[in-house]
Design a protein around this nucleic acid. Structure first.
Lengths: 141, 141
DNA sequence: GTCTCTGCAAACGTTTTGCAAGTAG
DNA sequence: CTACTTGCAAAACGTTTGCAGAGAC
């Protein structure tokens, strides 16, 4: 029934995490919401199928996933943290009008930045990662 | 006594904001804390000289300052928002070990990014600003 | 004198915690 | 069987709000 269920079980197993219905539900929700959900959005969605799931459980689970490299967590201008199912290095486009966020991935850009900082070393600082926050306006396509 | 007091009064006046001891204290605190303080750090510092200042007042004041372009506000991986006294466009270096943050400003970098996105247009998106989060490790100088 | 700002306390939204009961392995 | 996970409720944390009194201009 759920197309991603097997892949999700595999992923949990490969990280040495126990497979529970709650965990599977939470990971499935990323495929439905797609975007970059807040904990609250995940709770709402998961409760449609599993009304008894506790708020604390979702937070603990998301935390476990972040710690085990299943998902990542980031923050925007607004209060609530957001979770990201995509693990490969990427940047974000932020709408200046609302909370909408999209991914942006471009190897040339990353190469350009690498080259730049190779040439312009920052004193007493060793770069581990560079993330761009690209703020602007989405226009209807 | 306070070296920056006059400049601060000028700045408030130029923005059409009333000059109150609380507002002056809060702006002075940026020169003491230097870094990128949280509201909480500002409250602690301001209370050393002005023990009666209310939490709500500090938040409201910081908000007023942001709205009037006196300071800016941004978020990091951690919970609390941070405030920035520097208004010119700049990027941030984030310590991967602790909460330390430093500014990074480089016109060449900004030019490089402008050129890049001029050549690589993002469909249905109009860029307004680009902020780099440069994550890494500060080494003792 | 007017209008804004301040202090206070209550409340809000998000997230964390402690613990007893439940469940995956 | 054991260790980890869940549900629940309380509380912690950062922040916002409403209001009455105080203060800047």
């Amino acid at each position: 029934m759920e197309a991603h269920a097997d892949a999700i079980r595999e992923k949990l197993k490969s990280k040495g995490l126990k497979i529970t219905p709650q965990r599977v539900s939470i990971l499935e929700s990323f495929h439905v919401i797609g975007d970059h959900p807040t904990a609250d959005q995940i709770i709402d969605l998961v409760r449609q199928k599993n009304p008894n799931i506790a708020t604390g459980t979702v937070y603990k689970t998301l935390d476990t996933f972040v710690k085990n490299g299943v998902i990542t967590k980031f923050r925007t201008e607004s209060e609530a943290a957001r979770y990201d199912f995509i693990l490969t290095h990427h940047h974000h486009l932020f709408s200046s009008d609302d909370d909408h966020i999209e991914d942006y991935e471009n190897k040339d850009l990353d190469q350009l930045l690498d080259d730049f900082f190779m040439r312009h070393n920052i004193p007493n600082f060793k770069i581990k990662a560079i993330k761009l926050q690209i703020i602007g306006r989405f226009s209807p396509s």
